[in-house]
Design a binder for these strands. Structure first.
Lengths: 202, 202
DNA sequence: GGCGCATGTTAACGACTGTTAACAGCACTG
DNA sequence: CAGTGCTGTTAACAGTCGTTAACATGCGCC
């Protein structure tokens, strides 16, 4: 059974991750063949099975990695924040950076979840749920007026922040564009939460 | 060549549309076989080819239909509005109703576009572009402070409004929940646009 | 009644896909 | 030098999928 080795952090594995993410985002998980992924990393087809147990395992690796990274980074930022409002700003900045820098992963994150095997899908869903709860708590503390709408509002804000792949303004490579976009997303998100909280108070 | 008949509006065609939309949203275009769609409408497999030229044609019919419906309805609402702000409210209400009532179609609308044949994909993209332009104009007139950020802000608002399938709060069937969600989305969107416009003015 | 047409059915095809088997080169170690 | 493990290759398999062909049924219309 010479299936999945993972000695340290194999650079070939990371290369496969990157190309697979790009291809999955462009044509969908089921729309990409293993031969194509192999060709993208310079080996051909079944050679990938020396690095991943299967095509499913590549997607699982990507999605679990994203979810863990978002949650870990989010918790770290909240822990380091002085108050709720600072925590919210830090969460926003972290998520926006991720959305702008890794738009392919953001796309996969909620598009290909249904193609995961049961176990990994539940794991990713659990991580996503914890990430949402983190946000709901912080958003609720920052905007007490949100009340019971906090969860739905947070979901909506995720939709807002994750819209950047559709905007196609993150790929320009222009650093000024990127920071302007980040600032705009930050304002949009805060404005949305603030308005929802304010209206609920009335 | 007994391929695509369309006498008037065949009820069977509409039934196929509905089930295909549901299945595509649940498992993805490539993840659903024609036999499965056939089974969902009570006929089996290749019988679908009496109503659609192929599987691609079903997806194309759905996506073109959505895009046309959004654009036509949006234009109608803008034309009937008294001023820019009323037009924006009407656009919001229309899009929110659509997102809440047809969450499967909203999901497909930006998820499966890449699986369309070239011609239909360009057609859908063109319709989407016109819909975005309609919003950009109305949003820019309602919030002059948006300036050059109007397009990106509109994309972000679409992401916000289209997040309802992830919220899973539209499926409850509870009419009170639905109107509450609609009102919340409306406030979130206006708050986002208002905050972006206000910050840009400073 | 017979003809045509719309709407199904089943059988079969050709292409493609994920995965495995069998084998080979190469680096490193005793 | 022999041996071992890692990484890659090509060939082949088994299954699935969209599509077509050939055939059946039933309704409406001269």
């Amino acid at each position: 059974m010479p299936t999945p080795p993972s000695p340290v952090e194999n650079p070939r594995r990371q290369q496969i991750r990157r190309e697979a993410a790009r291809l999955f985002a462009a044509r969908g998980f089921l729309g990409v063949g293993v031969d194509e992924i192999g060709r993208a990393v310079g080996i051909s087809g079944p050679g990938l099975y020396r690095h991943f147990a299967g095509k499913d395992a590549m997607l699982a690796d990507l999605l679990v990695g994203i979810s863990e990274r978002l949650l870990d980074e989010g918790r770290r930022r909240v822990d380091e924040a002085a108050d709720a409002r600072a925590a919210l700003d830090a969460l926003l900045q972290g998520h926006i950076d991720f959305a702008l820098d890794e738009s392919a992963l953001i796309t996969l994150h909620d598009r290909e979840l249904l193609h995961l095997p049961d176990e990994e899908r539940h794991r990713v869903r659990s991580l996503q749920r914890q990430y949402v709860e983190l946000w709901v708590t912080v958003a609720g503390d920052s905007f007490p007026g949100l009340g019971k709408d906090a969860r739905a509002a947070v979901h909506a804000v995720f939709g807002l922040l994750n819209s950047t792949p559709h905007s196609a303004a993150g790929q320009s490579g222009d650093a000024a564009d990127r920071t302007a976009m980040a600032a705009l997303l930050h304002r949009l998100a805060l404005g949305a939460l603030g308005a929802a909280a304010q209206a609920a108070e009335a």
